[in-house]
């Protein structure tokens, strides 16, 4: 983890600590607290769960048990590019799970995880409302319809090329100065 991510995390925990003080020490506040952290930071970091447990005087593993039960919580910071693979009925029938598997294999992470460089994260979603295009994947805000395993490589490659281009431009402008 680089330095900026570390300071970012520290700021997050400080913020969560002050947010916790606004909640009463009652166990029925567990879900609202978890939801608020998820809403604000898009994920629940393990130390955050321990802070919540401490505040509510619950056991950490109980908090973890509740949090992992629900699909609405994630435990890894979302990547810069979020890949959502639809596994709704239509996409499932048209092989959505194969598309998901291809993304997972390509990026070497599982659904719900983020690549170590925090560039990509993969999530499975239920239905995105364009079943005629099944199987569907959504990357950031772009809908990719009629996905095929062979297209997975291309999507990722596109982002990698874009990233390289930006880096080159940045270097060029720096050298010009």
């Amino acid at each position: 983890m680089n330095l900026s991510a570390e300071t970012e995390e520290k700021a997050m925990f400080d913020d969560i600590a002050s947010m916790l003080r606004t909640f009463e020490e009652k166990r029925e506040n567990l879900m609202p607290i978890l939801q608020e952290i998820q809403e604000k930071y898009r994920y629940l970091a393990p130390p955050a769960l321990q802070m919540v447990a401490k505040h509510l005087r619950l056991s950490s593993c109980d908090v973890y048990g509740v949090a992992t039960f629900y699909n609405q919580f994630r435990f890894n910071p979302p990547g810069k590019h979020q890949i959502k693979v639809c596994l709704g009925t239509a996409c499932h029938v048209r092989g959505g799970d194969i598309i998901l598997e291809n993304f997972e294999r390509k990026l070497e992470i599982q659904a719900g995880q983020t690549t170590p460089d925090r560039e990509f994260s993969i999530d499975r979603v239920a239905c995105v409302g364009c079943c005629a295009l099944a199987p569907v994947a959504i990357v950031d805000d772009t809908v990719y319809g009629h996905m095929a395993p062979s297209k997975v490589e291309g999507v990722i490659l596109g982002f990698e090329i874009e990233k390289e281009r930006k880096e080159r431009e940045k270097q060029d402008s720096e050298s010009q100065e």
Binding site: Q50, L58, S59, S60, C61, D62, Y64, G65, T68, F69
Partner: peptide
């Protein structure tokens, strides 16, 4: 009092987890 282990995840993925301090 407070358990050191508990159920985590759900359905077919349910496991016992030691998550904690």
């Amino acid at each position: 009092g407070q358990p050191m282990l508990s159920f985590a995840k759900r359905g077919f993925d349910t496991v016992i987890s030691f998550f904690g301090e």
